[in-house]
Nucleic acid binder design. Structure first.
Lengths: 191, 191
DNA sequence: TTTGCAAGTTGAACTTGTTCAACTCTTTTG
DNA sequence: CAAAAGAGTTGAACAAGTTCAACTTGCAAA
């Protein structure tokens, strides 16, 4: 059952009682998407926070030059959200596209607020989750400055081999912040 | 009084009662540092979370090549912490140096845990704070990929003119992820 | 099966940013 | 005040990454 994966994920952050886990899960509704379908598009308002139970998503923005810049990938057991757009109900800068047939568990804004109110320990859970998210985002910032594109590429495929194997080189390049032609040259140079 | 600034900062995130604000503040102890003094050095364990009431800090890592990569600046009314090292009491990758004579309010780990236990709404407060921190970190990641060094420079000095004015070009370059010689050329090219 | 389209490769010319060294200008500090 | 150290500038050679165009390869749809 897909809620088990969500429960396991939560328990990695905070050890909650089974009833609390059930209560949290009760707010989440499953949704399936076909490959290439969008869960969110730039300009619209993000009305959910999501947890991937199957498949994989790509979260990216389109800049003025038309480049697709990937903020992160969300595979099975990862969270998926536009925090800012979800909290303030403002237009999102992000696109979320399924890279394969995928399923997510979604919670909407009213239910998220209700969850925080009915189960105050959920605040701690998400406090811990956002804390961890901030740590990894800051680490990535530092890596982007200290490492060359080649070093970042090998760091990525070593750290997330399972995700990397599902991606095209174009998608990986969009995450590394380089053009796919250059990634092709990187791969040729050291093999 | 310096606790007023902390209270105002907290209220920007969550509207708490005066007694709750007092309770939070009671855990924070002031500490003053002279210009160039370090609040934390790479390799040691971060035993505090801090809030700057006066002065300005630079939070950076030293990479293998000897480059100082600045993660962020923390001026008056900003928070200052190594989340990861503080939570897990592991060696920090960060250095925190006062750029001028400065004062911070510090809370240690035991007191932070006690705060969360005695005042559960503090979880919500920090959940919101970390959420906002994650949003701005992710925005910066995207900017670093979409914008050129020149664009990032002008974005920085326009967004944080008060902080930028306190910094040397070397320090700004360390934040932008470029060498200070190149920043010098950027400034010459468009003025 | 064929067609077509997206993914990946390659080369050449180009732009962005680095490196190093020499120099000037300020700011500390003894 | 003098001396030294740090901050900023400049130029020339270089390295990293981009752009564009042409080509190949793999894959999906009719």
């Amino acid at each position: 059952m897909s809620y088990d994966l969500l429960k396991q994920n939560i328990k990695k952050n905070l050890n909650l009682a089974e009833t609390e886990l059930d209560q949290i899960c009760s707010y989440f509704k499953p949704k399936s998407l076909k490959k290439k379908e969008f869960l969110l598009t730039q300009g619209s308002i993000c009305r959910f926070e999501g947890f991937v139970t199957d498949g994989c998503f790509r979260v990216f923005t389109l800049d003025k030059k038309g480049n697709e810049n990937t903020l992160y990938f969300a595979a099975k057991d990862w969270w998926l959200m536009d925090i800012d757009s979800f909290m303030h109900q403002t237009a999102s800068d992000l696109n979320m596209q399924a890279l394969e047939d995928s399923t997510v568990l979604l919670i909407n804004r009213e239910d998220k607020i209700a969850l925080y109110e009915s189960l105050p320990i959920a605040e701690k859970l998400f406090r811990i989750m956002f804390q961890k998210g901030l740590v990894s985002s800051q680490r990535r910032l530092v890596r982007n400055h200290c490492l060359t594109a080649k070093e970042r590429y090998f760091h990525f495929i070593r750290t997330y081999p399972d995700i990397a194997s599902k991606l095209t080189d174009k998608q990986i390049a969009g995450y590394l912040g380089i053009r796919h032609e250059f990634l092709s040259k990187i791969k040729k140079s050291e093999k």
